[in-house]
Design a protein around this nucleic acid. Structure first.
Lengths: 357, 357
DNA sequence: GTGAAAGCGCTAACAG
DNA sequence: CTGTTAGCGCTTTCAC
């Protein structure tokens, strides 16, 4: 492990110049820079991040806090964020608050405060004002993905819009009895995602002159088994009664639930989309395989976006006029309707209509 | 941000004593320890990891290198490893080599060498001798999960055994025409997992006096769509020819492929397990939902195990006699057969037989 | 554009 | 058991 002084000696300059040449901070003549760079390369010199951090106060590392890891959404965000961070020379330190344990306080009161990160990203996690406050107090910017954070910048999608978009697609196909697979109340803790999507669904129905039927709204847990179970709960009683009562379409608040619903429908002898149209949300990796129509969100992109947001404040591009303003921003990430083969006009209503009020 | 000297002043001792009291290194009288601890707590003091690392040479951080993130296996390993690491006060810095880009050399030649980690864990990634050598040369132990690493400790499962176990289960049920869904050659790069499982399958068949039929072995890519496609490729031609030729059971080298196969079978009008038994490997989170019989491996546990392995060398328990030997270990993690509802005796062979040679 | 020198905040001998 | 004293390997004024 050669040190900076080895490089300095070899290049015939001072350590200060080596530091400047290698970091790009401070002016160095072109030829000196070349000499230093070559010396460093020939020695295999890599700056010690600890020494550098200690002296400069900047770690070039950002913390990512998540509540789960083994779910598509979280890893997709992390992949996006990590990609841009790594490419800018930053490391990513991961804190998984998974287990119910005391991880959370430990992470916020110890790990994140020991100065190992320059900033933190919260993924679909509602931080308390206290948690955010403490970080901000020691000069660590905080940003989040997936919902509002008191006093921090975030990137999200408009979940009401998502619900509306999905429902309007079904209405436009001519469906009138449209069911909804949403989230359980306890699931609403994080940012009201389920509620917002349901609100959009109801708004779209209302705008089409249809009164939302509480009997058509059931709760799941956002997983495939959860969607399957919820869909059976919805469809089985309906099948026993009049065909009249049976919904002809389902809007599931996540693709995983939608996939569960498709599977449940098949089991009950209903063809999709012949007897039942199903639409989800996310554009999950499995959506295409199941031919699922969905409201796509671009999760990796969202990860890239938070990272960019954060970098703008901790690592502003060189030669910048007014400092990037520190006011919390909210960035709305786009969503778009992807129509595949799980949605079609209802059997008794072959001609798609445009929406009517 | 109070510093160690603030704590020292408040507790009426020297900074050295504070360091000793808080880190547990070096003897401190019980009452001094209490005073220091209280002083630290009342000030909200947290040691600066950079300063501490610089002075001590230990970072209390381990790097985890993965080739993907958005796959169940990888995140499960990370969750397990992170849990034990965090609980021992370690941070986890994640390096995702995902994209084809130049991430890999950058990570190995720069990020991992800048002294931010005490050790590195490779998850289902084959490191070159050079990559491992460089890390070892600067005193960073390396350990891996999912396959042998030249010169490093690892935890794995016995994949030949896995293949044998699954196949023996099908044989014991009375199946004779047993197909295999394995991996494409290019998939074999990482540790020969697909090949080993197939070898176990063939060994079991041979032991039962059955010659493996190349036509019954098809390749997939370890995903649900991949398994689905492979299963169709296997079953469709067979269905067109004599029922004789059709396999009565399938051993898929991963649960995801097995799920794809179950779905494909249903589409082709075959009932599982009535017409076709299917068994996978992993005990994937969706396995139970699909009633999939499988050879379970305990992935999170494997993550815990590598972490423990590594900690033993970088953070040996206090009062230890001979230092933990540094010779690379290979730890075989157990697997076990989980029988659910996707496997049963073949239709024409109602009585399960015991294996016969 | 470059060098000298003073730390960054802690830990680890070494005395006592 | 505790204090003193050197650094750990860089970055950054401040002069030149």
């Amino acid at each position: 492990m050669p040190g900076i002084s080895d490089v300095a000696r070899l290049a015939g300059v001072s350590t200060a110049t080596v530091s400047r040449a290698l970091s790009g901070n401070g002016a160095v003549s072109a030829e000196t820079r070349v000499r230093v760079t070559q010396a460093a390369a020939s020695l295999g010199y890599v700056v010690s991040s600890d020494a550098s951090s200690l002296a400069s106060g900047r770690t070039r590392n950002v913390g990512v806090v998540v509540s789960h890891l083994s779910r598509w959404y979280f890893t997709a965000v992390i992949e996006g964020a990590q990609r841009v961070l790594l490419q800018r020379g930053y490391d990513v330190t991961l804190y998984n608050l998974g287990g119910e344990g005391e991880e959370r306080p430990r992470v916020f009161e110890h790990h994140l405060l020991r100065g190992r990160v320059d900033a933190v990203i919260a993924v679909a996690l509602k931080l308390t004002e206290d948690e955010i406050g403490r970080l901000l107090a020691i000069g660590k910017p905080v940003a989040g993905v997936g919902g509002p954070l008191p006093g921090a910048s975030t990137v999200t999608i408009d979940d009401v819009h998502v619900g509306r978009l999905a429902t309007e697609h079904l209405l436009a196909l001519g469906h009138r009895r449209i069911a909804h697979l949403g989230g359980r109340p306890e699931f609403d803790l994080e940012f009201h995602v389920p509620t917002s999507r349901r609100l959009g669904y109801e708004a779209a129905l209302l705008a089409a002159g249809i009164a939302p039927d509480p009997a058509l709204s059931v709760a799941g847990d956002f997983t495939i088994p959860g969607g399957h179970e919820a869909a059976r709960r919805l469809l089985e009683p309906a099948l026993l009664e009049s065909a009249q009562r049976r919904p002809t379409a389902v809007f599931a608040a996540s693709d995983e639930m939608a996939i569960g619903a498709v599977l449940a429908a098949r089991e009950l002898g209903l063809s999709v989309p012949g007897d039942l149209s199903v639409i989800g949300v996310d554009d999950h990796p499995l959506a295409a395989f199941f031919g699922l129509s969905t409201v796509a969100q671009h999760v990796e992109r969202q990860g890239e976006q938070v990272a960019e947001l954060l970098l703008r404040t901790i690592d502003p591009p060189r030669r910048h006029g007014p400092a990037a303003d520190d006011a919390p921003t909210t960035l709305h990430s786009p969503v778009d309707l992807v129509v595949r083969t799980s949605t079609a006009a209802p059997a008794d209503h072959p001609t798609p209509t445009t929406r009517n009020a």
